[in-house]
Computed example of a mutant assay.
Amino acid sequence: MKASYSVADAAFIIELPESHIRGWLQRAVLNFGSRTLTRRIVFNERDLRCLAVMRELVAHGLSPNIAAVKASFIVDRARDHALVAVVSLDPGRSPMLIPGDGLDLSGHAVVTVALAPMWAEIKQRIRELKK
């Protein structure tokens, strides 16, 4: 059985206020997570990664709706590879994944998110949660 994490656990792991996650859930922004038989929402590790990427995209100005879709796209394609996600602030453009030592895109209207450090931090916070 895969590990599952509550909203409170997810908030701790990805360092995001629980109220943000609950707000996104209420507005049906999240396209990840699942409900238990008792209707509680739980997240797996993929979902935590999506939330972490979404957090970064929202922090850079994308709306939560667009950020959720792009976060899922990024996580599903990147898997465990040490890539950088390059996301245009134009909602009509798809994210691109490049190697961590790829292009210098500073000065362009894009958001870059280094995924490997983010994945490592999620694993570390999960270990801390289990203590």
Rank of each mutant, 00 (worst) to 15 (best):
M1A: 11
K2W: 07
K2F: 11
K2C: 03
S4R: 12
S4E: 12
Y5S: 02
Y5K: 04
S6E: 08
V7Y: 08
A8M: 07
D9E: 12
A11F: 04
A11N: 04
F12Q: 14
I13K: 03
E15K: 13
E15L: 04
E15I: 05
L16N: 03
P17N: 14
E18D: 10
I21A: 06
I21W: 02
G23L: 06
W24H: 07
W24G: 00
Q26N: 14
Q26G: 08
R27A: 11
A28G: 05
L30D: 01
G33D: 03
G33I: 00
R35A: 11
L37G: 13
L37M: 09
L37Y: 09
R40N: 15
I41D: 06
F43Q: 05
E45L: 05
R46N: 10
D47C: 02
D47I: 01
A52M: 05
A52E: 04
A52Y: 00
V53G: 08
M54Y: 01
E56N: 09
E56M: 07
L57Y: 00
L57H: 00
V58L: 06
H60A: 15
L62E: 01
N65V: 00
N65G: 00
N65W: 00
A67Q: 04
V69A: 14
K70Y: 04
S72H: 05
F73C: 01
I74A: 07
I74F: 09
I74T: 02
V75D: 12
V75E: 15
D76M: 03
A78H: 02
A78E: 02
A78S: 15
R79M: 10
R79G: 08
R79W: 06
D80V: 04
H81Y: 11
H81S: 12
H81T: 09
A82G: 05
V84S: 10
V84G: 03
V84N: 08
V84T: 15
A85L: 03
V86H: 08
V86C: 07
S88E: 00
D90N: 14
G92H: 06
G92Q: 08
M96T: 07
P99N: 08
G100Q: 15
D101Q: 13
D101G: 08
D104L: 03
D104F: 02
G107Y: 04
H108Q: 13
A109H: 12
V110E: 06
V110G: 06
T112K: 08
A114Q: 12
A114H: 14
L115N: 07
A116R: 11
W119E: 08
E121L: 09
E121F: 03
I122E: 08
K123R: 14
K123Q: 12
R125P: 05
I126H: 13
R127Y: 11
R127I: 00
E128H: 14
E128W: 12
E128I: 01
K130L: 14
